[in-house]
Simulated assay, not measured.
Amino acid sequence: MIRPLGVLAPPDPEVARLKRRVTLASLAVALILVALKLAASIMTGSVSILSSLVDSVSDSGASLVTLIAVRQAMRPADAHHRFGHGKAEPLAALGQALFVTGSALLLCVEAVRRLIEPEPVGEGPVGIAVMVFAIVATLLLVRYQDRVIARTQSLAVGADRLHYVGDLLINLGVILSILLSQYAGVTEADPVIAVLIALHLIRGAWKIARGALDALMDRELPEAERDEIRKIVLAVPGVRGMHDLRTRSSSVHTFIQLHLELDPAAPLADAHGIADRVETLLRARYPDAEVITHLDPKGVTEFVPTFR
């Protein structure tokens, strides 16, 4: 049955704690890498290190936005936000995607300039040492993010993780660029690898934006999950059928609405008990879910949308 207004289940405190910790960790890692890469970029003059620096700057900005968004999203529902604040996370993810895209385009401009006016890369060992440190720090952070995502299914943390997974490839590319430029004399390698890094960033930004837009536009849950919802509902004794299943996710809460088809002769108390059983089972499977059921007598014709 429909819950009273304002009683959306509050976010899990453990989930909130994990999200806060992982966003603080990602911000700390990003700021440390920005400082190190800035120094390495000045010392080496490498545009590929500059590209990695731009990426780390975008990471730090994105991690800060994620930190703020996660704190906002985990606020409980209130009188002005009856469905909670969960959409703060996809909004943050969309902002990250736009920021990364802009940074990548600026990076392409600088890389093209370096192709036209090549500049040698210096202090190769310094640049390589910084990149190796960045790889180790990023690997540790990504492993931590994986554990948090498995527990929380956070869209914002997932978007943040995508940045850092890309960083692993970027840092390896920078090391290759330095080796080719300084030790093999292939000066074009530096800007070419920078362009490849920029294209990788744009591709990752598109993935982030697509997931964020799905959440903001209330896209249905995957069909496999919708099928599982149907199986749970139809297995409840007394349920004769169901229709008009509607689902969406705000990244913090899942929303499930459906019409239950019951015996027309069933007493109201029995129908109420069946609906409560359905909602209890669905919340057991989706602990963060807001479940709304509407009771229909089996066989009564009503308007049903053409989509499933």
Rank of each mutant, 00 (worst) to 15 (best):
R246A: 08
A77D: 10
G86A: 10
L91P: 00
L67G: 02
F255E: 07
H81R: 05
R219I: 01
R3H: 07
G238A: 10
L281N: 12
T44Q: 09
R143G: 13
V165T: 14
V112L: 14
F83E: 11
P287L: 11
L216P: 00
A194E: 00
L8T: 00
G61W: 07
K207C: 05
P10C: 06
V15D: 10
S103A: 15
S63M: 04
L216H: 00
E225P: 07
I274S: 01
R3P: 10
H163K: 08
A111I: 10
L18C: 01
V165N: 12
L107M: 15
R143S: 12
K231Y: 08
T247I: 02
I32C: 13
V278W: 02
I197C: 05
S251N: 14
L201Y: 13
Q153V: 02
S58D: 10
A198P: 06
R230A: 12
T138L: 05
L106H: 12
G122S: 13
I208P: 00
E302F: 08
L282M: 05
F255C: 07
R113Y: 12
R75T: 02
T44M: 09
E89C: 08
L115Q: 04
D270H: 15
L221I: 10
L24D: 08
V47W: 06
S51E: 05
I135A: 11
Y183V: 04
Y183K: 06
